[in-house]
Design a binder for these strands. Structure first.
Lengths: 225, 225
DNA sequence: CTATGCTGTTACCTTACGGTTACCTCTGTC
DNA sequence: GACAGAGGTAACCGTAAGGTAACAGCATAG
């Protein structure tokens, strides 16, 4: 699980990062709005933790901009406990709001709850077209035929299913499948080819599509023109 | 939407019930553990709001009993702000925890968020005229026809949507799409032409308009300058 | 020790993205 | 009326991004 933390108090930030690491939560860190924008462009997160007061702007504005374009759950951190601030935050799409000072344990729990929200809906089964995936039993079939995937391919498929119907961007795939490893583009390309080939045995319609520069996504072919 | 409220402070309870009613939230009310059990037996709720201190028991125990039998999201109310209490609550399956005193507005918002959690996560959408944009799935249609955009065009479209209904000025477009790059006017012009052409396939009304010297904006045809 | 299969690597192919250029219209100004 | 400047369109084309197949190294099983 990886989150984005945007917080200008570096002391608080380092403590948080350390603590969250122990909880198994990886953290990308930005201390300014500017940084946050550039870092977040690279990849998708399981959740975003935003401070309201930032040196070069306002976390609320950032959330407002993101609420129409990004799909991550947002949790606000702020010293401001006033109701107005909270209401504004929620109206900008925040899903949680924690007032400073707070316990790191609580932050960790709330982050985990938010992150689960996205994956919770993917119960145990997933179906698309003639494809059928049992996420618990790790059984995959397409048109009644059993499909066997290598570990990497399985990982990628579950990632895609978790995000369905949204695309998963390349950086996210790479961070998930090859965490802290040297990765080159060919490894990524091979994996895609292999999964694709396994998912569609004969002349079945392709399900795994690439959006140039944006990522990959599971969807049924739209055969209008 | 209907919730169960378990709270022994009758004053707080009546205020809450009144307020939530105005927000369109129906409330079943219990003031004791005993009552809560009997009332809740018949019905499923969108969320459950539990006080911790109850005259004949403890909300935490109730949550613990329910956490494997009931599927409703639980929000705790409590005067106890100690970390231990919160941790215990979360470990019993609570999804949120609000310390008294709190604003009724905040309670209402958090209840709504919890209730939404069970419903499928809906993607962020933008619609204008016959144009329909799913910002998360990155699917665009115009009059039911699927539209495929290049990465640059997609970026521009999201930029326009973020600012809608306000115009976006040229400098902003350029900084967003070509950050720290040499840009000439032709690149900008080409991008506009291409996006325009993709957005209106045949003789559909143009949606992307230029305001001289001000920038570009999405709007339905309306030639007030 | 052989066999099988997973995965990283390489080579080669195809496509369409986007920068470029040329030419057009429109509007306002001197 | 001509010129300038802004904006719009269409076509050209090099190249990077993506796709595939085949091979090689390495593990693991049997």
């Amino acid at each position: 699980m990886i989150i984005l933390l945007v917080e200008d108090d570096t002391l608080l930030a380092t403590h948080s990062i350390d603590f969250l690491a122990k909880e198994g939560i990886e953290v990308d860190y930005a201390s300014t709005v500017r940084q946050a924008k550039s870092i977040s462009a690279q990849q998708q997160y399981d959740a975003i933790v935003l401070d309201i007061n930032l040196p070069d702007g306002d976390g609320l504005n950032l959330a407002q901009q993101w609420q129409h374009t990004r799909s991550e759950p947002i949790l606000f951190l702020s010293a401001r406990a006033a109701l107005d601030d909270k209401l504004k935050a929620f109206s900008f799409g925040a899903l949680d709001y924690l007032t400073k000072p707070f316990a790191l344990e609580e932050l960790a729990i709330r982050i985990k709850l938010l992150a689960n929200k996205n994956t919770l809906k993917s119960n145990k089964r997933f179906a698309l077209d003639s494809l059928n995936v049992d996420l618990n039993a790790k059984i995959i079939t397409r048109a009644q035929r059993l499909i066997v995937l290598s570990p990497q391919q399985w990982q990628l498929l579950t990632l895609l299913v978790e995000h369905y119907p949204n695309p998963v961007d390349k950086a996210t795939v790479i961070n998930t499948i090859w965490p802290d490893q040297d990765v080159n583009n060919n490894m990524y390309k091979s994996l895609l080819t292999r999964l694709r080939s396994n998912l569609s045995h004969e002349h079945e319609t392709p399900l795994l599509h690439t959006l140039k520069k944006q990522g990959i996504v599971l969807k049924m072919e739209k055969t209008d023109e």
